[in-house]
Amino acid sequence: MSVTTPDISAAAQRTAFLDGVNPVSKILAMVVLSIPLLATIDWVSSTVAVAIELALVPLCGVAVRDVLRRSIPLLAFAPIAGISMLLYAEPGGRIHAQFLLATVSDDSIALAVAVALRVFALGLPTILLFSRVDATELADGLAQVARLPSRFVLGVVAGVRLLGLFVDDWRSMELARRARGVGDAGVIRRFFSMAFVLLVFAVRRGSKLATAMEARGFGADVERTWARPSRLSWRDGVFLLGCVCIMAAATGTAVAVGSFRFVGS
């Protein structure tokens, strides 16, 4: 996300296909790319979706290295997501192990693998679509294209932008706790105390920001103009159609090979 890691060169080389797509379309795409996967737990649909999405990385303008780097937490945690399913899914097929309420069966193994894959299939589009979305463009899109109330859109985006400042505060607070003799132990307690101070800073800075915005005429009853136009183009149509096709291919393949499994069925 550009808010946390400002990519200085991004503005200079925003030439990928995805850069010409309106952020609002990307939000829609995220819904398109996740709902069908949430409706089924099977390994085929997730695998197909991931394969197609990876093949389309060059169109996204995200460096492969960045995709890999940002996928690390996904890859690390996806298997853990399967554990609960492995132990507590309704047993079916051959039973491999059983203790107390936990039962590892053919069904639960299949579900666990599917859940782990699904975690990855759900996470990947977020990385590909939103690594380069600019908060200001997003605000412009939400207000001008999606027609959400501008007071809310701009207020929220401006507030969210304060995120970058919190990172420095957090680092300083960590050092300050070491300096004050309470930095040796009690990680959890220290976390909560720092999170609290972060909240104090956040609220106060937010109040000041609100005043600064009002001081510049924000929130008054004047009809607002927009310095940057935000509109949809043919690219958005092609892009969304493409996303629908990815999901159609993924679920279609799963149905075709008979692995499609509607949640709860």
């Binding site: 200001t136 701009l154 915005m213 510049r216 008054a220």
Partner: peptide, 18 residues
């Protein structure tokens, strides 16, 4: 706490838009 947008130009434009 005064910068509304992340880019200089957009930020200066904010008041005019309003």
């Amino acid at each position: 706490a005064a910068a509304v947008f992340s880019r200089v130009g957009d930020d200066v434009a904010f008041g005019c838009e309003n």
